[in-house]
């Protein structure tokens, strides 16, 4: 197996007494697409900043491409492509100049950057916006431009912090397509997200983080296998009766969860579970059988209460 491009051992980041990241250990192999999942405040962005060599760790070990970010920040950053959570494009420059000037920050020559900028504009489907102002772009276009900008130095690792948050479905799908192409071309992707469908689409492997610690690690499929059932049956009996029905349904499927508006039955076969429910004499108002998703895993591991 080739040497990992990222190695974190007991990584810790403290702000005064608060540990934002509290002992994370993980490795990312070259060409791998690695996801960090977790609720808000779980420590995802802090981890990304440390991996991006723009934040100094408080404890533990961290190696990016074999170098220590505390001492080799500029060298490491020269090999990274960073897509931050909030767009930080240069609003005083036009679209194409954003790419060229950003490339200059890496010390790249104009002779390389001019054709490269055009190539990246094509990749981001922004050719006809080359001379536009950044502020005139839509959210999806800005995001694509940010990703194009992150590619200007041919990074070995792309760091994407919630790349599709705030985009409409069309824009998300275009973006996923672009990211998938990068992955196919062998670029290592590290991304944070709280969209489970995004994680399932893009990540080979992921860790679920909560309160600065790893709750689970594995491929999307193995996580679902390990922490959820194959299928989920969702039944509604009306808000008033859900709890009562759930009590009576105990023993159906592997596990039952009561939500205010519906009851979830985790089972290998949702249809069989539904048959059992009717056998027990319950008539659900609505019923739905679906495959278990990463979202079920996520909510099971990090809880359903609202986290701010």
């Amino acid at each position: 197996m080739p040497a990992p491009v990222i190695t974190a051992v007991d990584l810790v980041k403290k702000y005064k007494d608060f540990a934002a990241v509290d002992g994370l250990s993980f490795e990312v192999a070259p060409g791998e697409s690695f996801g960090l999942l977790g609720p808000n405040g779980a420590g995802k962005s802090t981890t990304m900043r440390m991996v991006g060599a723009v934040s100094t760790r408080t404890g533990g070990g961290l190696g990016i491409l074999g170098l220590d970010p505390n001492t080799h920040g500029p060298e490491i950053r020269s090999q990274l492509g960073v897509v931050p959570q909030a767009d930080n494009l240069d609003a005083e420059l036009r679209v194409r100049d954003n790419l060229i000037v950003y490339g200059r920050y890496f010390g790249l020559p104009y002779s390389y950057l001019r054709p490269k900028a055009d190539e990246l504009l094509a990749f981001a489907q922004l050719e006809d916006k080359a001379k536009s102002r950044v502020d005139d772009l839509s959210g999806g276009m800005k995001r694509r431009l940010t990703i194009a900008r992150a590619l200007v130095n041919n990074p070995r690792i792309m760091l994407l912090d919630e790349p599709t948050t705030g985009l409409d479905p069309q824009a998300r799908h275009v973006l996923w397509d672009r990211l998938f192409r990068l992955k196919e071309q062998g670029t290592t992707l590290v991304l944070t997200t709280h969209y489970m469908d995004e994680a399932e689409q893009l990540c080979d492997r992921l860790i679920v983080v909560d309160k600065g610690r790893i709750m689970a690690e594995g491929t999307p499929a193995s996580l679902i296998r390990e922490h959820s059932s194959r299928e989920v049956l969702e039944v509604r009996f009306g808000s008033a009766r859900n709890a009562e029905a759930a009590e009576a349904l105990k023993g159906v499927g592997d596990r039952i969860e009561v939500l205010p508006d519906r009851v979830l039955v985790y089972a290998h076969s949702g249809e069989a579970a539904l048959a059992r429910v009717t056998e027990l004499g319950f008539e659900p108002m609505t019923s739905l059988v679906r495959r278990s998703s990463l979202e079920d895993v996520f909510l099971r591991l990090t809880g359903r209460s609202l986290i701010d």
Binding site: S78, F106, F123, L151, N154, L182, Q185
Partner: peptide, 10 residues
């Protein structure tokens, strides 16, 4: 649409 990753690296 493809990015030539083998080109110049900083």
């Amino acid at each position: 649409e493809s990015i030539d990753t083998d080109a110049v690296r900083p």
